[in-house]
Design a protein around this nucleic acid. Sequence first.
DNA 1: TATGAATGAGATTTCATTCAT
DNA 2: GATGAATGAAATCTCATTCAT
Lengths: 201, 201, 201, 201
Amino acid sequence: MRKKGSNGQESRARLLEAAAQEFARSGYHETKISTIVSRAGLTQPSFYLYFQSKEAIFEELMELFEIQFKEMGRHSREEPDDPDNVGQEGNRREASEGQMYRELAGLFGFLGKNQDLTQIGFFTGTQSAALKRRLMSAIHSDFAAKQQNGHFRHDADMEIAAECLLGTIECLTREQLLTGKRPPEELAQEVVRLYLLGLMA
Amino acid sequence: MRKKGSNGQESRARLLEAAAQEFARSGYHETKISTIVSRAGLTQPSFYLYFQSKEAIFEELMELFEIQFKEMGRHSREEPDDPDNVGQEGNRREASEGQMYRELAGLFGFLGKNQDLTQIGFFTGTQSAALKRRLMSAIHSDFAAKQQNGHFRHDADMEIAAECLLGTIECLTREQLLTGKRPPEELAQEVVRLYLLGLMA
Amino acid sequence: MRKKGSNGQESRARLLEAAAQEFARSGYHETKISTIVSRAGLTQPSFYLYFQSKEAIFEELMELFEIQFKEMGRHSREEPDDPDNVGQEGNRREASEGQMYRELAGLFGFLGKNQDLTQIGFFTGTQSAALKRRLMSAIHSDFAAKQQNGHFRHDADMEIAAECLLGTIECLTREQLLTGKRPPEELAQEVVRLYLLGLMA
Amino acid sequence: MRKKGSNGQESRARLLEAAAQEFARSGYHETKISTIVSRAGLTQPSFYLYFQSKEAIFEELMELFEIQFKEMGRHSREEPDDPDNVGQEGNRREASEGQMYRELAGLFGFLGKNQDLTQIGFFTGTQSAALKRRLMSAIHSDFAAKQQNGHFRHDADMEIAAECLLGTIECLTREQLLTGKRPPEELAQEVVRLYLLGLMA
DNA sequence: TATGAATGAGATTTCATTCAT
DNA sequence: GATGAATGAAATCTCATTCAT
């Protein structure tokens, strides 16, 4: 007789969930299979019914993060810019500000939603470096375009600027977002104004 | 005639050096004592002549970084500001810029000098969080003062700004400085202008 | 079909048994986990399924001995004295003799039954000193009472006498009982007559 | 230039002394060469100038004890019995008592003198069993002779009695003598009366 | 005589992983 | 689908002992 709810897919999901929590909290090496399975209410051999190894489940979590991350990126790019703000002279700054705000708010919103995956995929995982490099590239391209358009200063190095923004995102995510100190929107707002206007009065 | 390197202090130094490299490259858990000692041209028991445990040598390296870091901070604070630039109206921005540049250039210079220790003490070690929090606090205080003086915008959140700058420093250190892509001075220069003036044309 | 002995409780028992033998034969330090597990037909990691450490299994054996020892003490105290021998003048000596004989025979019987545990708990273990001190105290109290009643000489020091008897018990256990040279009853009989009557003709 | 008093014989003696203390306090396995040499104010290699191994120094200490022990035995046997007490009827008991008292007092006196060696040679060492067996044999012979002479009861087993006395000696030495609770003479006196007269009033 | 430096050998313990049911 | 039991492989650490000076 099958225990209610003890079907394979659920067990697998519970393992993933438990693993995400543990990896996020303690990192890869400090996390033991024994802890994961006991959190999931299973035993060690059961783990190997669903995952080939400790590494495998970790990688699956990283991929999960990456897939969702890419999806988020696509959504954010598909979102049409507000057409009212296009073309008007005085709104050039506001347009930039608005687009950047939406993208950052979207990113922070995403990162803040699944904290464990973010911790793993953005900070712990081995692929996080590659992912961040891609993110940096995207920012860089965006910034370079804006520099070409004359929106951004010509005497600033857009690669450095993109790297700066990436670091800023990382740090705010870690210290303010994942700790719940500030909501995504506030962070986005502050970052946008800081990066566009600077701090000088 | 003494065999070359058969000197206790030298062996200890070689172990520290090797450990720094390994810890920096592979992190705490992936680093094995066996690797450290073989890099240092010794056998495992010799390790325990000089350090009580793997943890102990790691902590010693973290402390080493912290001590040097504090020292660097003290030096940078003792350096007198250029007196010519004080008090003149039009130079307010240049004064701020100059001070911030010197501090950042000093910091980047320090971090870039001993790369292994920086990797350990700034990115890997358990105390790195505390150290960064202290650094963030210092930046925050500095920014808040400048906001009070009217140098900085009143509608910006100085805590967030400080956090942003810290993240920027982290990321540039990791991606540009430790990889040798850019020199400390260039990074400092770009960061200062970005944070003071923003990106808008 | 379950492989013979592939039952957790049995494995645990085999480990305890093997450990008792080894500790008894060779003492704590000379006993290696590797010997215990190989005697039990297991490998080293299996040991740690059942016991936290070498110290832990040793302590468990000591406790086992102590528990059984206390139980034996309780039984022996609850056993009613032979009512026929009570109250009659000429039987005072016989009464004392009988009681002492039963207690000693019970003690020797117990110690002779599980030789390994006795070796560990009575001779090897760290708690053996405390246990013996308690035993000595009990003997001392008993002797003191008999001295008060006028059964025992007033010019003898009951503390010393108790200590003497304890030493006697120890030595006979080690040399005669655990080696199988003499049965518990004979030892008890001889000791009783020696301690009550002395050796003089 | 030779440090004053740092000649070989003295160093050797200091090592023996330190080793005796450590072995007596902590037993063979818990005692480390490093502790011995540091107590003796030397370094580890120096140890091997004087002794071949840890085992060797331990054996030397055991032998030292044995030699002194044998010497003590010889002295005690050579001591002439008090001639006044020979041959008189009523003094048979007193003669036995006196001889036994002198021997026990001598033994306790010896054992109480060098506590560390006693601990090692009488309780810890591997040869202690043999030594005690010899001691037991001697007592046994003595008792058997007395039984032949009609001094001791014929219905007592002299082997057991000897074993009992040995245990008594051991225990009193450990608990009363080495702890300083009672002087040798008192112990001897009590033991003699106990073993000759028994406890019965 | 003495030692600073180094090591061989081996012990305990941990953990991811598998076997048999 | 699940598990009780077991293990291979490896890591950290200890200690008696030796080498070279």
